[in-house]
Design a protein around this nucleic acid. Structure first.
Lengths: 162, 162
DNA sequence: CTACATGCAAAGGGTTTGCACGACA
DNA sequence: TGTCGTGCAAACCCTTTGCATGTAG
């Protein structure tokens, strides 16, 4: 699900502000790396971001992508999505949202629900610590995997992109 | 939070049944590897399991631990817990539960809530696919990290064990 | 007894790091 | 212009794999 071009521009602009506020430099590479994450509405892994950025910035190196993505994460400008047996993914969607992850192909979609954003947690959680964030994670079979193929398989594949 | 010894025995026994049902062999190593996961109420990573098992089975090798843990996972006898910037962890708790994860030290606790077990999901999820499982993931600062120390730090450390 | 599991060691692959050059502020 | 970021390549892990040996069924 690619994101609207105007939205992407806004997001990139907001990143610039975030970087400046944090006192780090706003470089061409950082903007393009972020744009790549923001552009795909999905949750690209490092490799996917790298390949995407390289189309526009052929000299960019993989370790720069790593450093930029972790920088954004540490500054709270993007978030991460970690799935067993898969590479770490990055997410520019900072609005409250929840995840549906396909256990077969690994596809991860965001979904929204005002109700789930404001769940009341049981008292026992208060004893564990201070809550910062709360998300519902749903696992299941995506439409494509649910139909046609054998649901007992357990292969997990990351989204392929040129 | 270590688990009660009798509970552990029951869990290990149930694993034996699971393995037999799946038509794979019930070996000493597999039982001990599982016991190590079941014993710690926590969510040990591969290395932690390995070190624990080696105390009782000094000849066990790391790759056997890997193979066993993935086997159990594939058979649905344990589950995994994946956190950004951390090693994958394993969880013998197959009862419905939810997670509280400390963003600073990485500590992960289970908590329970009948209400959260039966959340009603928004209609948009139906369009994404077929739901198999649903879990709430809470991020925050655990009691130890919340008090005394600077909450702006972002260090993540895995639970240390001999 | 036979097939499957284990241990060992080596290969594999993703991620991080050190350093000199380059570019933002 | 000085400092921070980048690119390159090597180092570092963690994880997986191939193969001979051991063992559960």
């Amino acid at each position: 699900m690619p994101r609207d071009e105007e939205d992407v521009r806004q997001l990139v602009e907001r990143l610039g502000v975030g970087l400046r506020d944090a006192g780090v430099r706003v470089t061409h590479q950082r903007l393009e790396i972020f744009r790549e994450v923001a552009k795909s509405g999905g949750h690209p892994d490092v490799e996917t971001v790298f390949r995407g950025v390289r189309k526009r910035v052929p000299t960019v190196s993989l370790d720069t992508v790593y450093r930029a993505l972790w920088l954004f994460t540490d500054l709270g400008l993007i978030t991460t999505l970690s799935l067993p047996r898969e590479r770490l993914r990055f997410d520019a969607n900072m609005k409250p949202h929840h995840h549906f992850v396909c256990t077969k192909c690994g596809m991860a979609s965001d979904f929204y629900s005002e109700e789930l954003d404001h769940l009341r947690l049981p008292g026992s959680v208060r004893d564990l610590g201070v809550v910062q964030k709360m998300q519902v994670e749903v696992r299941g079979l995506c439409r494509d995997c649910a139909e046609g193929t054998d649901p007992t398989q357990r292969t997990q594949r990351k989204e392929e992109e040129l």
